Simulated assay, not measured.
Amino acid sequence: MGIQNPTDEKIKEVLHTSKRIAVVGLSGNPDRTSYMVSEAMQNAGYTIIPVNPTVNEVLGEKAVASLKEIDGEVDIVNVFRRSEFLPEVARDTVEIGAKTFWAQLGVANQEAYDYLKDNGVETIMDRCIKVEHAKFK
């Protein structure tokens, strides 16, 4: 069937109704895209939860090693990992009950997409959350 992203209207709705973003693969290096995008989303009012087993804290937020370690609800799982890791992250996303799975620009995986859609998770792939957010301010 192929990967089909939601309409712009649905993406706008997701961004306007979401508050907590778990960022899988968030780097503590300010020169990395994951850091810059997450900082912009934090500055826009979102709560950022760094998910990276190699860091303790990013952007003033305590990091967790995996999605399963997050307390409370997660609105968006934003993924900065290579495409081959998406099926594993997709399974964890479903397990924690996150509403939306968002794979960053250049990142997509059909297996993960099918699994997420079969489990009722809004799925966006190969799009930058910062760029999309800027379109709908």
Rank of each mutant, 00 (worst) to 15 (best):
101 F>D: 00
12 K>L: 12
130 K>S: 14
86 L>K: 03
104 Q>F: 10
70 I>A: 08
40 A>Q: 05
49 I>R: 06
77 V>L: 01
132 E>Y: 02
63 A>Y: 12
4 Q>Y: 13
61 E>Q: 15
60 G>K: 10
81 R>I: 09
130 K>Q: 12
30 P>Q: 09
135 K>D: 08
57 E>V: 15
126 D>G: 10
29 N>E: 02
85 F>A: 14
60 G>Y: 10
135 K>E: 01
128 C>S: 09
58 V>L: 05
90 A>T: 05
87 P>M: 06
118 D>Q: 15
39 E>M: 14
28 G>L: 03
130 K>D: 09
9 E>S: 12
7 T>K: 08
6 P>C: 07
2 G>P: 12
58 V>W: 07
82 R>P: 11
2 G>M: 01
63 A>D: 09
106 G>C: 02
125 M>F: 04
56 N>Y: 14
130 K>Y: 06
58 V>D: 02
62 K>S: 04
31 D>A: 15
134 A>C: 10
73 E>N: 15
132 E>T: 10
45 G>V: 11
67 L>Q: 05
128 C>F: 06
81 R>H: 09
36 M>P: 12
74 V>F: 06
62 K>L: 14
47 T>V: 08
2 G>A: 10
123 T>Y: 03
29 N>G: 11
2 G>V: 11
82 R>T: 14
87 P>I: 02
